[in-house]
């Protein structure tokens, strides 16, 4: 188990290094940072002085080394536009994105898994067909369309939930949460639903496919032959076997959700990292873009590693492989 863990962590570190290299390259590709920072009348001496202060006179490898070292300490430099530390900008926005994504993930599991089981067990029933058809729509509709439609129906027409913003938030130390206020929870409904819809259909289809597959296996047949009631076979024996791919997918998709949340955040004007990134792109605010790239990748890699480890915990066969 320990060897397994070490191997996974090593792999993760390599991937992160590669991502850091790419983030670092952005700075070099878009041109000379000094040109962007100084005003046009600056003298050559001023430019050289800035270049030296920023360490840009050193070799590429040294620069990259310093970038990695400060990035691991959470220091991504100063935003060109806001003239504030990128890390504090992101720290401000991170909780709102994470809350949105967490709620969307929980929604997708809580709704998707039972739907998947139902559609697997009651094959051929009209509601199964309807759900199957609905899930195709869910998979194929782009999330900004879903978001706009939700706003149109539930905010504009019915007036049930706010159309934009995050509502009131409560600060818990460095974390700001909207879950503790009524307006915060209300504001969360539509964006999380918009973000989760694709996810729900994905989970449902995956669970259904896995259930159908598992229900055909010998150990399910044998469980029936032992006299285990059908319900217990479906929910205890078969579903447990399906959870593995669901865990994998949820883990992988969590990273995707954080990345794709930027569309939902834009539609709902949700003050998260995604919105920050979109604004950064508009103003070519490279430190923010690089930081966003690194952080989202870090979340991806961390989740992948976590999923692998969770696998080993859930499936005893993987745990004992090293023996």
């Amino acid at each position: 188990m320990l060897v397994f863990l070490m191997k996974r962590l090593f792999n993760a570190a390599i991937v992160m290094l590669a991502v850091a290299a790419m983030a670092f390259m952005i700075f070099r590709f878009v041109g000379d940072p000094v040109e962007m920072m100084v005003n046009e009348q600056a003298s050559q001496a001023e430019r050289d002085e800035l270049r030296e202060r920023l360490g840009l006179d050193q070799g590429v490898v040294t620069q990259f080394g310093r970038f990695v070292v400060s990035a691991t300490q959470g220091d991504f430099g100063i935003s060109y536009r806001n003239q504030r530390e990128v890390s504090s900008l992101i720290a401000e926005r991170f909780p709102s994105t994470l809350e949105l994504v967490l709620v969307a993930t929980i929604l997708s599991l809580v709704i998707g898994i039972p739907l998947g089981v139902v559609t697997a067990i009651h094959r051929g029933k009209w509601y199964t067909e309807a759900l199957q058809f609905g899930s195709i729509i869910g998979v194929s509709l782009p999330s900004f369309v879903v978001g706009i439609m939700l706003i149109l129906i539930f905010s504009v027409t019915l007036g049930w939930a706010p159309a934009f913003g995050r509502g009131d938030v409560v600060d818990l130390g460095w974390w700001s949460t909207g879950l503790l206020t009524h307006s915060g929870r209300a504001a969360l409904i539509l964006p999380s639903l918009a973000l989760a819809l694709f996810q729900i259909t994905l989970v449902m289809r995956l669970v259904r496919a896995e259930m159908l597959e598992t229900m055909r296996t010998d150990f399910i047949k044998f469980a029936r032959a032992r006299g285990v009631p059908a319900r217990v076979v479906q929910f205890r024996h078969a579903l447990r076997n399906c959870l593995m791919p669901v865990i994998t997918m949820t883990g992988m998709q969590f990273g995707n959700l954080i990345a794709f949340a930027l569309i939902t955040e834009t539609v709902f004007q949700w003050p998260g990292m995604g919105l920050l990134f979109i604004q950064a792109v508009t103003f070519v605010d490279i430190p923010v873009m690089a930081a966003y790239l690194c952080i989202v990748s870090f979340i991806f890699v961390a989740l992948n590693t976590l999923v692998d480890v969770t696998y080993a915990v859930v499936d005893p066969r993987l745990r004992h492989q090293g023996h």
Binding site: T217, D218, F222, R226, G227, V228, N241, D315, R317
Partner: peptide
């Protein structure tokens, strides 16, 4: 369901796949 396992026991062909792996 009350008869299977209680009054009729079954043994299937492939012991490698008859048992739930988890």
């Amino acid at each position: 369901e009350k008869i299977r396992g209680r009054r009729i026991g079954a043994i299937f062909q492939d012991p490698l796949t008859s048992l739930h792996p988890l």
